[in-house]
Design a protein around this nucleic acid. Structure first.
Lengths: 192, 192
DNA sequence: TATCCTGTGGATCGTTCGGTCCACAGGAAG
DNA sequence: CTTCCTGTGGACCGAACGATCCACAGGATA
């Protein structure tokens, strides 16, 4: 088995773990259960994962890191504010739609992490929020957006993040359409 | 010990459990831990709670039931649409601010419930969402609000529900102010 | 053939899990 | 005094927990 084989196997196990953790919770999923689902004995399993908490960390960190990279790229491009917000929302919803299990674990189970692992995830999460704040500030400076309370960004993220719970990949709307729906309502308002 | 003493003690234990479940998760909190925090032995503890899952159910159900009752009262009063939405949002945020631990358990841990218990909680949750949809529809019929996609209600609830994670009772804003901030942004829009 | 290394299953570890059971404390009722 | 009932602590149950350890399979290398 080559190095890439090891990494591929580790990724496979982590993906299976994401599904199980999302369905039964982190503490509610046993190592034996994970091993069985992956078709691996205890020894082989630990060969790939190191520890149960390392699996939770990997699941929690990967997607938010990806979104941070995505946001950084967009912010570098100096897009008009509305376009910037729209791209950020679309990117996030596309990712959530594609990795619902991972996001469910990220939102529900990150509190089960301890020590530095927990700190890293919280920091990454805060960083992502700061990118949204930057995007909004940019729109205010360009006089495209009203100056709104700083905490509004929490509301916007709540709106978007919550989709991990209800978005249906085979439903009537694509992730982009959901993102647009939310941003249209938010930017134009819903008053007749 | 009278009947009311029993109920008071049960409520006290459930409140302590809400704090523990919110901090360490349902599966992450042991019965021994709960007993110790409540100052009760195993026998006494089970005398009050029946089972661990019954505690989770009680925590999850109580607040959402309260909000359903609140929403029903408001809908009966035939308020103007904007006022109705504002009152519903304020009521929810006031409740979340007052019962953060319970709402954290409700959002994160309801999946740990099984069978009928789980069904009841999910049904109550869907009922609450339907009240918001009614409120929005009422505004559309009165031509006060634009006709928006049905799924927008998920976004609004995401915005409001997410506060359980970040709202600080001793922070700069009251629950009513947060509710107003979100509704203002949503109704008027954020475009300059 | 002899040696080495990665990958592997399963026995096993001590701990903790949710839950049951039982003896009994102590006030109320007769 | 006796009987009863609610409330109580803690011993105890089998099962499952996360993790470790070890023997060894089998291809690669010398």
């Amino acid at each position: 088995m080559t190095v890439t084989g090891f990494e591929a196997n580790r990724a496979r196990v982590i993906g299976i773990a994401a599904e199980l953790f999302a369905r039964n919770g982190y503490h509610g999923t046993g190592i034996a259960e994970l091993g069985k689902a992956a078709g691996l004995g205890r020894g082989a399993l630990y060969h790939y994962i190191g520890s149960k908490e390392a699996v939770l960390y990997a699941i929690s960190k990967e997607q938010v890191d990806k979104m941070n990279g995505f946001a950084e790229e967009l912010l570098d491009r100096n897009l008009p504010a509305e376009e910037l917000l729209r791209q950020m929302a679309r990117g996030l919803l596309r990712n959530i739609a594609e990795h619902r299990a991972e996001w469910a674990v990220f939102f529900r189970e990150y509190t089960a992490l301890t020590g530095e692992w927990r700190d890293h995830v919280i920091t990454a999460r805060e960083r992502y929020e700061s990118y949204w704040r930057q995007a909004l500030d940019q729109g205010v400076r360009a006089k495209v957006l009203k100056s709104t309370p700083r905490l509004l960004v929490k509301g916007i993220l709540g709106m978007l993040n919550y989709t991990y719970l209800w978005f249906e990949p085979d439903g009537e709307l694509t992730p982009d359409q959901v993102a647009d729906m939310f941003l249209d309502a938010l930017i134009e308002g819903i008053r007749a």
